Amino acid sequence: MSSLVTRNTISRAFSLDMREGISSANVAARGGAFGSAGGAKDLILSMLTLGIYSFVKSSIIDQKRAALEEALKQLCEKIAAHPAANSHTVEVDGKTIEFKQDLWLGMNVVNISLVEKGHRSELGNVTGESLWSFKTILASQLGMDISSPHTGSKDVRNAIADNLDRLASVNGFESRAGSKVFFSERRDFVSLETFGDNADAEWCLLRREHGVYDLIMYESAENLLQYRLPHPLTRKNIEEGQIIRGTDMLQHLS
């Protein structure tokens, strides 16, 4: 059986230089559609086949769109799970699509390529977007809820609130586990957002050195990873393992 998602399907989905606005271009829908919008030819064929042609064509469109949507959902999940990575690949109907973040004239650009038998052919690019922001746009198109399961965790927020004065002190908060956590001026030293300003914000711990952590918003930690920015205090590169989220934070906040 021949593949429904052909090279042309993938090319049609991503070949557009999306600087004009990726948010207004539904990638899966564009790829799933046929090359032409139809017209007299489709009408005649549908009449001659008593509507069967239109039904089959519509079914094929739906199947191609569903396959592309599934691949894009996997891409969103990969980017969310590994924000520091600068490239990701997904499989769709036996074909590999690569999404790679680069810089062009000082701007972020996501280059999209089809990889076949070791050969890479560029399909298009999204200028002005990082992989992370590209993921956010795709997730919106797909109706995905990619919010963190830790967002707004009552246990974490309560632990921070209970120890706020000591966290904000010069000496920091010393936990029973022996670690130290600092939260100078009760605010994220990257975004400068104060604890309590945003009830939906997720807070995390960023390891400064062994046993020493800073309390910042997870969004700030993601940005440091995504844009490969050094730790604001140590000036060293940050790795995913330096970030502690959710209930794993509680041992350092009690």
Rank of each mutant, 00 (worst) to 15 (best):
G196A: 11
D93Q: 02
A161Q: 12
M1I: 06
S24Y: 06
A84Q: 13
L48E: 14
S36H: 12
R12L: 08
G106I: 03
N111K: 12
L215M: 10
M249F: 00
G124T: 05
A161L: 11
K73Q: 13
F173I: 01
T247Y: 02
F182V: 05
N26G: 00
G51N: 07
F173Q: 03
A177V: 08
I244D: 02
R186W: 01
L229W: 05
K95P: 05
D93V: 02
L45H: 10
E202M: 05
Y227S: 03
S220N: 03
C76F: 01
G128E: 05
L224N: 03
G21E: 09
A84F: 00
G51F: 09
M107E: 14
S87I: 00
V90Y: 03
N198I: 12
N223S: 14
I79C: 01
G118Y: 07
P83R: 03
R208D: 14
A168P: 06
I22S: 04
I44P: 01
S3V: 05
L192W: 01
V115L: 11
E209F: 02
L123V: 06
L123Q: 09
G31F: 03
V212G: 01
L131W: 06
A37F: 05
I160H: 02
I244G: 01
S46M: 09
E20M: 12
E209T: 12
R166N: 09
E240V: 09
D214G: 08
S130V: 08
S254P: 01
P232S: 08
I79F: 03
G35N: 11
K180D: 00
L250C: 04
Q251L: 04
L131N: 06
Y53K: 10
L43F: 13
E185H: 14
K180I: 10
G241A: 12
L43P: 00
D200R: 10
N125G: 06
M144N: 04
F183E: 04
L16M: 11
E239D: 10
Q141S: 09
F189K: 07
A161K: 15
F99Q: 01
M144R: 05
K135C: 09
Q74F: 01
P232F: 09
A177Q: 12
G94R: 07
D17H: 13
L45A: 05
T49K: 10
K57S: 11
T136Y: 02
G106H: 11
I243D: 00
V110F: 06
V156H: 01
A66K: 15
H210I: 10
